[in-house]
Computed example of a mutant assay.
Amino acid sequence: MAIVNLTIVPLGTQTPSVSDYVAAVHRELEKTGIKNHLTPMGTILEGDLAEILEVVKTLHEVPFEKGAQRVVTTISIDDRRDKKSTAMGKVERVKAKL
């Protein structure tokens, strides 16, 4: 299972605020059933990598549909295959060592 950090930034908008765009992306994401966690700086997705990448293409289009003139999408992929891992599991392992 892959853990993906996704950040979608709309550019060329009328305001520096992006919360309306983030909310629209998350409404679209919720339709997919992919496990996700909203963070202050992006969204964590968990699941099959091929499925996530297809969803990312769809999510990248959402700000354009809302009028953005330019969109920058950044993804980081943690694809561990030696054992099952989750985003929260990774956090808990670090907390246990603090």
Rank of each mutant, 00 (worst) to 15 (best):
V4I: 13
L6D: 04
L6T: 03
L6M: 11
T7F: 00
T7V: 14
T7A: 15
I8C: 07
I8E: 04
V9R: 07
V9F: 08
V9S: 08
V9H: 07
V9L: 13
P10Q: 00
L11W: 08
T13M: 07
T15F: 05
T15Q: 13
T15V: 13
V18G: 05
S19R: 05
D20L: 11
D20A: 14
Y21N: 02
Y21H: 08
A23C: 08
V25P: 01
V25Y: 01
V25F: 01
L29Y: 04
L29P: 05
L29Q: 05
E30R: 14
K31S: 12
K31V: 02
T32C: 10
I34H: 07
I34L: 15
I34W: 08
I34F: 09
N36H: 15
H37N: 09
L38F: 12
T39K: 10
T39D: 10
P40C: 11
M41E: 09
M41H: 11
T43C: 06
T43S: 13
T43Q: 08
T43G: 08
L45I: 11
E46H: 02
E46K: 06
G47Q: 03
G47D: 03
G47K: 04
D48A: 09
L49C: 09
I52A: 02
I52P: 01
I52F: 05
I52L: 04
L53I: 09
L53D: 01
L53H: 01
L53V: 10
L53N: 00
E54N: 15
E54G: 15
V55F: 02
V55I: 12
V55K: 02
V56M: 06
V56N: 01
V56T: 02
T58E: 14
L59G: 04
L59K: 04
L59W: 06
L59R: 02
H60C: 09
V62Y: 00
V62T: 00
P63C: 07
F64V: 08
F64A: 07
E65W: 04
K66T: 02
G67H: 06
A68E: 06
A68L: 06
A68R: 03
Q69T: 11
Q69R: 14
V72T: 14
T73H: 09
T73V: 08
T73A: 12
T74A: 01
T74V: 10
S76M: 10
I77L: 10
I77T: 12
D78F: 13
D79E: 11
D79V: 01
R80K: 14
R80G: 08
R80V: 12
R80E: 13
R81D: 08
R81N: 12
D82H: 01
D82N: 10
D82A: 12
D82K: 05
K83N: 00
K83V: 00
K84S: 14
S85I: 14
S85R: 09
S85L: 14
S85Y: 07
A87L: 12
G89A: 11
K90Q: 11
V91E: 06
E92V: 14
E92A: 15
V94H: 13
K95P: 00
A96H: 11
A96F: 03
K97T: 14
K97Q: 15
L98S: 14
